[in-house]
């Protein structure tokens, strides 16, 4: 995910469903249109929940990446 400027990031490791998803929603709410926000989750359920929410809200899932064993960073662009 090099070259992408992350406006806000939250490390939600240690919280479980729905913690990381609610953290993503909180970040998106507080972001400006065009910003990319990121949440790091250690919860397996986030791999389904966070992309599903981004899709429902018609935002853009910029990407996902493993940042540590069992920890995934989700990047979302608030495009509207």
């Amino acid at each position: 995910m090099e070259g992408i400027q992350i406006a806000k990031e939250s490390d939600a490791r240690g919280s479980f469903c729905p913690g990381p998803l609610m953290e993503m929603i909180r970040l998106v709410r507080s972001a400006n249109v065009g910003d990319v926000v990121a949440v790091i989750s250690g919860d397996e359920g986030s791999k389904k929940d966070i992309p599903a929410w981004i899709n429902k809200a018609h935002y853009e899932l910029v990407g996902t990446e493993e940042v540590a064993p069992g920890a995934t960073r989700f990047l979302c662009r608030k495009n509207h």
Binding site: C17, P18, L21, M22, D49, A52, W53, K56
Partner: peptide, 8 residues
Amino acid sequence: FPLNDVFN
């Protein structure tokens, strides 16, 4: 409900 189902 805010999540993808009717309860968490």
